[in-house]
């Protein structure tokens, strides 16, 4: 009965899915953090900090968009 279960796929699912979910959560949280702090820094006249946090948002945004594009490619290539 246990032979019916594809243990290899199941094992892979159990570690790949959490990694994928956490990567999406982290990248998007950094997008929000970067944009929020960049805005605050700009208002406080801290141009360097605003640029730094803007870059953080940009890099995290690129990673987030990359993960979304990869997700769509999975859906389309089924």
């Amino acid at each position: 009965m246990l032979a019916a279960i594809e243990w290899g796929k199941l094992g892979e699912l159990l570690y790949v899915a959490p990694i994928a979910g956490i990567v999406v959560a982290v990248t998007y949280a950094f997008v929000i953090l970067g944009l929020s702090r960049a805005g605050d820094s700009r208002r406080n006249g801290a141009a360097a900090a605003a640029t730094f946090y803007g870059l953080v948002a940009l890099v995290a945004g690129a990673a987030f968009i990359g993960s979304v594009v990869y997700a769509i490619s999975i859906i389309v290539s089924k």
Binding site: P18, A29, I32, L33, S36, G39
Partner: peptide, 22 residues
């Protein structure tokens, strides 16, 4: 895990932009 990580990263930001972003 995802929500704990998210709260950890954005927890000290103003709620308005954070909520709008999410």
């Amino acid at each position: 895990i995802a929500i704990l990580v998210a709260y950890r990263i954005v927890g000290r930001q103003r709620p308005g932009p954070v909520n709008h972003g999410y």
